[in-house]
Each structure stands twice: as structure tokens, then as C-alpha cells.
């Protein structure tokens, strides 16, 4: 009996040990598991003057609301995935700096959200694919990532720390991403630099218009835009053309007029923008928005249609 009892005890002890090893193994693995964005968390080893004081905190599309509230909506429109944010102090002055890194899941998503938050009159920097610095923030995009480095203090006091941190982050992102090729088609005359934008949805406030590339222009006091809208196929483009012409006929300043350009085209007057010209070629719709010189608009739209990729 004693021998038997000892055996049972041994077996129990071994079993408990194995269970403990399994649990410990899981816990250790969980504790050691790195978040995909951990490589963007800069610590004392990489930047001796920067000490993290808050975070890192991680967010997903379903929880980004907790961080930036209603501001999260556009990020979701552009396909945001993981997000990491943390704050730290820099140097003896204890300047607080906040870092946000958004994994937008694609180059186009990163460019899209970046392009919708920038202004042409910012000071642009050679960082990532493109970046800029404002009174208290440095933002850039590279590959599928959109990065923001903020300071509570106004620049220039934090210029160097913010730039140093941003460049360190940029080094950790693999090279990748470039301005979408379609922007090569847009006219150069009167083009405003740093206004290229990708619009994922609700282009010109219309639910049926999405996936658009736009650039702003200015001539004298007149501001206007050109757009290239990429639909799924020729039929879809045709439907969008019809829907927009119906919209202008109902809410515009006058009925549309059909013109000869591309495969199908019309000119109309919209309440906010003024003169609109829409042209279809294949699955693409190109548009001038707010350019009152219709001859120039048609000439430039014609040039754009020539450069469009072939589509069914």
C-alpha cells in the first residue's frame, strides 16, 4: 500500500509539474509575444534622451474610437488596422512627445489618410514617401504606415526631438509606397503642390462615386479641381455618369448639356462648385470641378483621357 501510495504521489507530482510547465509556457509565450507594432515603440536603448511615460497603448479598428473618438471615422474609411500610441519626455527639459503609428494595411490607405489630413502650405520634409511639419506635429507616410509625432509645446522648441523621433521611426519601416501613378495624368498648369489626394468614398458627396484621385488648382481667385474616378468596369462608369447627370439636373443651377469628349461627356452647374464637366472613358470618369473656362477644362480633360490606362 505504501509503495502504491508513493507511486500515486509521484504520478500526481509529475502531472502537476507538467501542467505547471504547460501553463507557465503559455503565460511566458503570451508575455513575450510581441505586438506587430512593437518595433515602433522607441525606448531608452534606441533614443537615450527619450523616456516613455505613457503606453504603449494598442488599438484596433473596433477600439480606435476609444483613442480619437469621432476622428477615427476617416481612418476606418481608409482601412486602418493596428495602431500603437505612446508618450514620453525628451531630455532635461522634459518635453512631452506623443507618437502615433497607424498601420493602414495598404500603400493606398496610408497615402489616402495622409493626403486627407495635410495642407499644401505646411513645411514639407524629406521623410518617408512624404512628410510635413506643423506647429506641433510631424506627420509622414511610408509603405503602409501613417506616422504622427506630436508635441504639446509649439515648435521650434521641440523641432529637433520631433524630427529625431520621426526619422528613427521611418528607419524602421521598410522602403515602399509611392504616389499613385494616376497623378501623372493631371495637368501641371495652375496645379497646387501637395494637394494630391485619394478619396475612398463619397466623392463630391455622392455615395455612388468612390475610389477617386483628385488634385487642387488655382488660377487668380478661382480654385478648382480635377478628379480621376476609377470604377470597376465600363458599365459601372456609365451608371455613375447617369446618376451624376440626374443629380445636376435636379439640384444644379441648370440642366446638363452633353458634349463631345471621350466616350460620353456632359457639362453642368453645381451649387457649390459651379461648372462641372464629367467625361467617361472605359471604367474611368474624369472630371473638372469649378473651372469656369470650359474650353480650357475640355482641353485638359482631353489630354487626361489620352493617358488613361486601357480598360474594358
Amino acid at each position: 500500500m505504501v509503495v502504491h501510495s508513493t507511486n500515486i504521489n509521484n504520478i500526481m507530482h509529475k502531472s502537476l509539474f507538467i501542467i505547471w510547465l504547460i501553463i507557465f509556457g503559455f503565460c511566458s509565450e503570451a508575455a513575450l509575444a510581441e505586438h506587430p507594432l512593437d518595433k515602433f515603440v522607441l525606448n531608452d536603448n534606441t533614443l537615450p534622451r527619450f523616456k516613455i511615460t505613457r503606453g504603449p497603448n494598442y488599438y484596433r479598428p473596433e477600439s480606435l474610437w476609444n483613442y480619437i473618438n469621432g476622428g477615427a471615422l476617416p481612418y476606418l474609411d481608409y482601412g486602418v488596422g493596428d495602431v500603437v500610441t505612446y508618450a514620453g519626455i525628451w531630455g532635461a527639459d522634459s518635453l512631452e512627445i506623443v507618437v502615433d503609428v497607424y498601420d493602414m494595411a495598404s500603400n493606398l490607405g496610408a497615402f489616402g489618410i495622409y493626403s486627407n489630413e495635410r495642407f499644401p502650405d505646411y513645411t514639407y520634409l524629406d521623410i518617408g514617401v512624404e512628410g510635413y511639419i506643423t506647429e506641433n506635429a510631424l506627420c509622414f507616410w511610408k509603405d503602409r504606415f501613417y506616422v504622427k509625432v506630436f508635441s504639446q509645446e509649439d515648435l521650434p522648441i521641440t523641432t529637433e526631438p520631433v524630427k529625431t523621433i520621426a526619422r528613427k521611426l521611418a528607419e524602421r519601416i521598410p522602403d515602399g509606397g509611392a504616389m499613385p501613378q494616376l497623378f501623372m495624368l493631371f495637368p501641371e498648369q495652375n496645379r497646387l503642390t501637395h494637394t494630391e489626394a485619394y478619396l475612398a468614398k463619397n466623392v463630391l458627396g455622392q455615395e455612388f462615386l468612390s475610389n477617386a484621385y483628385g488634385v487642387n488648382y488655382k488660377s487668380g481667385d478661382e480654385e478648382y479641381q480635377f478628379y480621376v474616378i476609377e470604377t470597376s468596369n465600363r458599365d459601372e462608369a456609365g451608371k455613375c455618369m447617369n446618376l451624376y447627370s440626374e443629380f445636376l439636373n435636379e439640384y444644379g443651377e441648370s440642366k446638363i448639356k452633353h458634349i463631345t469628349l471621350g466616350e460620353k461627356a456632359f457639362i453642368g452647374q453645381e451649387s457649390w462648385y459651379g461648372t462641372m464637366i464629367f467625361v467617361q472613358k472605359g471604367k474611368y470618369i474624369i472630371a473638372s470641378v469649378g473651372l469656369s473656362d470650359t474650353d480650357r477644362a475640355q482641353s485638359q480633360l482631353k489630354s487626361m483621357t489620352i493617358g488613361l490606362p486601357k480598360s474594358d
Binding site: L73, N116, N202, L204, E270, S271
Partner: peptide, 14 residues
């Protein structure tokens, strides 16, 4: 209007 939901001025104007 909850203005943050759009970047489209023509929608606001409407």
C-alpha cells in the same frame, strides 16, 4: 450637422 463626418463642403452647403 455633425461636421466631422465629411470633408465635402458641398454636402454642408446642401
Amino acid at each position: 450637422l455633425g461636421g466631422s463626418r465629411t470633408n465635402e463642403p458641398s454636402v454642408l452647403k446642401r
